[in-house]
Write a protein that binds this DNA or RNA. Sequence first.
DNA 1: CTGAAAGCGCTAACAA
DNA 2: TTGTTAGCGCTTTCAG
Lengths: 354, 354
Amino acid sequence: MGNKEPRTRLKGSITMAELARKCGYSKATVSRALADDPRVKPETKALIWDMAERYNYRPHQVASNLAKRRTKTIGLLFPSAPRTIADPFFLEYLHGVSETLFEQGFSLLIPQVKQQRVTETIEQLIAHRRVDGVILTEPRLEDERIHLLQESNVPFVFLGSTVNEDVSWVDGDNRGGICQGVCALGALGHGRIAVITGEEGLVSAKKRFLGYQDGLAALGLELNRDLVWPGDFTRQGGYAAVASRLNQIRSGEVTAILACNDLMAIGAIQALNEARVRIPEQISVMGFDGIEVGKYLSPPLTTVQQPVYSLGREVARVLLGLIAEEHGTVHVTLPVSIVNESNTIGPAAPHGAA
Amino acid sequence: MGNKEPRTRLKGSITMAELARKCGYSKATVSRALADDPRVKPETKALIWDMAERYNYRPHQVASNLAKRRTKTIGLLFPSAPRTIADPFFLEYLHGVSETLFEQGFSLLIPQVKQQRVTETIEQLIAHRRVDGVILTEPRLEDERIHLLQESNVPFVFLGSTVNEDVSWVDGDNRGGICQGVCALGALGHGRIAVITGEEGLVSAKKRFLGYQDGLAALGLELNRDLVWPGDFTRQGGYAAVASRLNQIRSGEVTAILACNDLMAIGAIQALNEARVRIPEQISVMGFDGIEVGKYLSPPLTTVQQPVYSLGREVARVLLGLIAEEHGTVHVTLPVSIVNESNTIGPAAPHGAA
DNA sequence: CTGAAAGCGCTAACAA
DNA sequence: TTGTTAGCGCTTTCAG
C-alpha cells in the first residue's frame, strides 16, 4: 500500500531534501530528528525514522562533514626506518586502532612510510585539513613532531609515552615490564644478564633500559657496561649484537639475554642457533612486546607481553575523546606480563666463568 | 616588499575566495588555474600559483570532494576468521596499498575485521557513499560479495584471482608457483610429497592445489590422496595436519611437505620440531607466500616468494585506474620465485619405505 | 580567456 | 516544536 516508490537501493539513494518533502517536514527538522535532537517531538521523530528506513535514506558523509567542518579521518603515522610498517607489532596494533575508528565512522589516512621528511608529511596532513586528529608512534626524547602538532591545534596521541607532560599518550608498562623480566631471570639464578637496547633517542628505549637497571638493583646486581649491547629494535640489530659477542656467551660471562623487543630477540636467537648455542640450556633469551610471531618459533619466545591490540584500541579511544573534547591530556599505561615462561629461558647453567 | 600579510601558517590557512580576491580574479579562474586547466592564460596561472604559494593556500579536500561527488576514500576489507588482519602477509600488503593510495591523496576505510556479516559491511560502505572504491581479499569460488558490489556500481578489485571473468584482480602466480615448488622438490629426489591444502572454498586454495597436481604430473608422479592433507591457511591448521600424521612421516611414506602458505609451513615445522623430526635431514618443508616472518625462523623457511608489497601497490593502482575510468576490467598476475632454497628443503633421504 | 551564479547535501543560527 | 535562511569551500555550467 502506498509503497511503489522507485526504490533505488544503494544506487542513488535519496537525499535529505527529498526525504523531508516526503515526510512533509523541513530539512532542518529531518536533520534534527535523525540526529536524535531532543527538540523534535517524539511522534515526528518516529515518523521521520520510519520514512528514512522505508526510503532507505543514507546521510551523505561528505556533505555532513563539510557542514560540520570535520573530516572524519585520522592520520596514522607509522615509525620510519629502521622500523617499518612491516614490523609485526604494528599490524596487531593497527588492528585495534582501525577497529575502534571504524566503529565511530572514522577513516584512516596512512602516509607513505618511506617518507623521511616527517615534518613535511605532518604539515601536509594538517594543512590540507585532511584529518581531525593524528596518531603517532615511537616518541623520541626530542621530538620535533610534537611542536608542529601543538602549533597546529590538531588533537594527537602517541603510542608510547613522551617526555612532554602536556602530550597525551598510551603505553604499555615498559619500565616495569623489563624489570619484571630481569627479576624472572634472576629468580632462575641468572646473575649475568645482558641487555640488547633499543634505538637510541627513543623514549621507549630509554624507559626499557631504566627497567633493566631497576631489575638489576632489585636483584642486588651491579650494572656492567660490557653487558649492555646496543641495538636498534630491528631483527638485524639483535642478530648483530649477539653475533659479535659470541665469545662472551661461550665463556659464560653472560647466561641470559634480555632483548628490548621481540624482533631483536628473534635476531639474537638466529645468531645463537647458527652458532649452535642451545637455548635455554646454554643461554636464556627473553624478549619484549609479545608479538604474534614470537609464537611461531620453536620453542615459542619467552617474552613480556604487551596488550598490543588493546593499546591500539586505547590510542584510538583517547584520540576520539580528545577530538570530542571530552577530556584533556591523558596518559594511559596498560599492564604487561611475562608469557611462555620457561620456553626460551631456563635455570642458569653452572658455567665455568671466564 | 608588499609581504606583510597575516601569514596564518597552517592554522586557518586562506580560502579560495580570499585567494581569488588577492589575485584580482574570480574563484572560478583560480579554481581552474589550480587544476591546471588549459583554458587559463599561462601568465594568469603563473600569477595565481605564485600567490597560492605565497599565501600558503591549501585546497579544502572535503569541500572539493563534495563538489566533485567523491570521497577520496577507499574501503579495504581484510579476510575474516580464521585469517585475520594479524596475518603477517597482510601487513606487507597493506604497506603497498596504503603507500600508493596516499600518493594519490586517498584515505583508507578499514572496517572491523571481526565482522562476520560481510554483506552488511559492504552495504554500509557503499550505501553511505563513504568510499569511491573497494579492495577485497581472498575471493571465494562462490562469492556473494561480488554480486553486491557489481549491483552497486562501485569500482572494486580483488587481491587474488576470481573465477568471474568480469571482475578485476591482481594476483601472484599461485598455480605456477606451487608447481615450481613441487618440481624443485622433485629435483632433489623427492617422490613422496605431501601437500597441506588451503581453506576450502577459496580460489587461491584451489589454484594452489591445481599447481600441486601440475607439479606431480610434470614429475611423472601419481596423485596420492593420503598425501593430501587438508588445511585452512592458519598456523594451527598446519600444525594439526602434521601432528596427526607423524606416523606417515616417520615411516618414510612422505619425505617432503609442501604447505600452501607460509603460516601453515610454520605450524608444520613446530609440530616437526616438537616431534624431534629434523628438517631438512629427515623431511623437507616448503611454504608459499614469502612473508617476512619466514626469515625469522632458524633456518629461514624455504618458500615461494610472492611479491607481496608489489601486489599491494598493483591492487591500489588498478583500483585507481578503474575509478578514473582509465581502463575496464583487468587481470594482473605477478611472477613468484623460490627463495631460501636449501634451507628447509634438502635431498630426499633414502628412508626405509613403509 | 574570465566571471557570475548555481549548486554538491547537510547543518546551524535565528526566527516564528 | 518547526521552518527559514544562510552558509561550509569548492566546482562547474553557462554566458560573455
